[in-house]
């Protein structure tokens, strides 16, 4: 894979050297947490009813802080929205001519696509760190009432990596043969809201009608959001919560491995000028 490292370097240089691209990428997670976490504060609905309200609140959300509840969802969604665009640069490379150089170089064709996926994943991890920082700093923000374990941190990081990887992979594959970036923007617009709202990213499962809950159970966004949420709410995972989290992680891992194989074979064969 002699192409993967230089191509990923290229992508990252293009990212951190473009001030608008770089700063908006870093501001986006802060907006997410400020606007969603504050104005969308669902837990406040319950807070008027005194001790009974708090009990209900804890039963539904597992916490009295909506930001604490929603952080796993926002981390996942912000990763998702960044990942959706990772395919567009493949189209630009082809339109601008850079692709012609890659195709005559002795590199695996899949490394062109993997470099997009890898650089997107790096960007998402940087965004996520900022997001967690912002969530912790704002008033009424993140409360780790049950602490945090090393396993928990590992789960958060790997869930985000797997979501970033899988969705950048899906959208890179879509872009491999496309000639116009408008097409991929159309697909992104079509798919982003259903992915977000048919998941447990922003709302607890108790809010969902049965049919939507079934859909949400199969949505990878839910898997990552729930796994991260369990870690944040519980600190140390035990019993059935640990089991459920591990199931979500396993689904994510299966999706990631599947996408890894698909990207490899499709891009080796199909990528072209």
């Amino acid at each position: 894979m002699s192409g993967l490292i230089p191509l990923t370097e290229r992508e990252l240089k293009k990212w951190y050297r473009n001030p608008v691209f770089f700063i908006t990428g870093l501001l986006q997670p802060i907006f997410w947490i400020l606007l969603f976490g504050s104005s969308f504060n669902l837990t406040s609905v319950f807070s008027g009813a005194g001790a009974a309200g708090t009990r209900e609140e804890l039963a539904v959300f597992g916490t009295t802080s909506y930001i604490t509840f929603v952080l796993g969802g926002i981390l996942t969604t912000s990763s998702l929205f960044t990942a959706l665009f990772s395919g567009t640069s493949i189209i630009f490379d082809r339109r601008l001519g850079n692709m012609s150089r890659f195709l005559v170089s002795p590199i695996h064709r899949s490394s062109i696509v993997f470099s997009k996926i890898l650089s997107t994943t790096v960007r998402i991890l940087v965004q996520s760190i900022i997001l967690v920082g912002a969530a912790a700093l704002i008033p009424g923000g993140l409360v780790l009432s049950n602490g945090m374990s090393l396993l928990g941190v590992l789960i958060i990081i790997s869930a985000l990596i797997m979501i970033a990887f899988s969705f950048s992979a899906i959208f890179s594959i879509i872009a491999i043969r496309l000639k116009r970036q408008e097409t991929i923007f159309g697909i992104i617009n079509l798919i982003n809201l259903p992915l977000l709202f048919a998941s447990y990213a922003l709302f607890p499962s108790k809010f969902f009608p049965a049919w939507l809950a079934t859909v949400a159970e199969y949505n990878p966004v839910s898997w990552s959001a729930q796994a991260i949420r369990y870690v944040i709410l519980n600190g140390t995972l035990t019993g059935s919560v640990l089991q459920q989290t591990m199931y979500y992680m396993l689904y994510l891992l299966m999706l990631t491995v599947f996408m890894l194989v698909v990207v490899y074979f499709v891009s080796e064969k199909e990528i072209r000028d």
């Binding site: 473009n18 601008l96 150089r101 170089s105 002795p106």
Partner: peptide
């Protein structure tokens, strides 16, 4: 190739170095 293949967002030398790494 007929296309312009170098990356405008990189320096001249960086383009050369990137391609050298491919080899």
């Amino acid at each position: 190739p007929q296309d312009l293949t170098t990356d405008e967002d990189l320096k001249g030398i960086e383009n050369l170095e990137m391609v050298a790494k491919f080899y």
